[in-house]
């Protein structure tokens, strides 16, 4: 077997809160920044600060990444801050599984599974797509590192997919 071109690691419990709202509403931006310390991301962007991040998922949906233990509080806090504003804030930490793909071949791993021009994926962009047969979202989370989020029920499938794709050689 060839040397792996990247190391695949489950990222462990990751707090996540889904927020659906009018993203152009100033109250929404204030609540999100208050909860995460991150500025509002533009379309398809992910903004990170101080171990937290906010990702633009669709024109009316954000995904807030926070420490796992803080997620219920963040969801409740958003609901409180946005009382009177039409929105839906839900904790989805346990509905997802997150992996990091680290190494010189991280891009190749993605290129084997996702119909995405990963070579041209800029820092700070989150791309929602599919990994083989399941939905996924990915972004550059560090030097030579890509983070990938999928649904919890298929975590085993996705982990194995990534491991198989990480078998060398490089593309």
């Amino acid at each position: 077997m060839s040397e792996p071109i990247a190391v695949i690691e489950p990222a462990g419990p990751q707090g996540m809160v889904s927020l659906r709202a009018d993203l152009s509403d100033r109250a929404v931006a204030q609540a999100v920044t208050a909860a995460t310390g991150c500025a509002m991301p533009g379309p398809r962007r992910i903004v990170a600060a101080g171990g937290k991040a906010v990702a633009w998922m669709s024109p009316d949906e954000l995904l807030l990444l926070v420490p796992h233990a803080e997620a219920p509080g963040v969801a409740a806090g958003l609901a409180e801050a946005l009382a009177g504003t039409h929105h839906l804030a839900t904790e989805v930490s346990d509905a997802r599984a997150m992996f990091t793909i680290r190494g010189p071949g991280a891009d190749d791993v993605v290129a084997k599974l996702c119909p995405v021009d990963v070579e041209r994926l800029p820092e700070g962009e989150i791309r929602r797509t599919r990994a083989a047969q399941v939905a996924a979202a990915l972004w550059r989370s560090g030097e030579g590192e890509i983070s990938l989020v999928a649904f919890r029920s298929v975590a085993g499938y996705v982990e194995r997919l990534l491991e198989v794709a990480a078998e060398g050689p490089r593309l």
């Binding site: 379309p43 398809r44 024109p59």
Partner: peptide, 12 residues
């Protein structure tokens, strides 16, 4: 037009 991604048919 909602997110600007040029998606292939398998994503649609």
């Amino acid at each position: 037009p909602c997110c600007g991604v040029a998606a292939e048919e398998t994503e649609l």
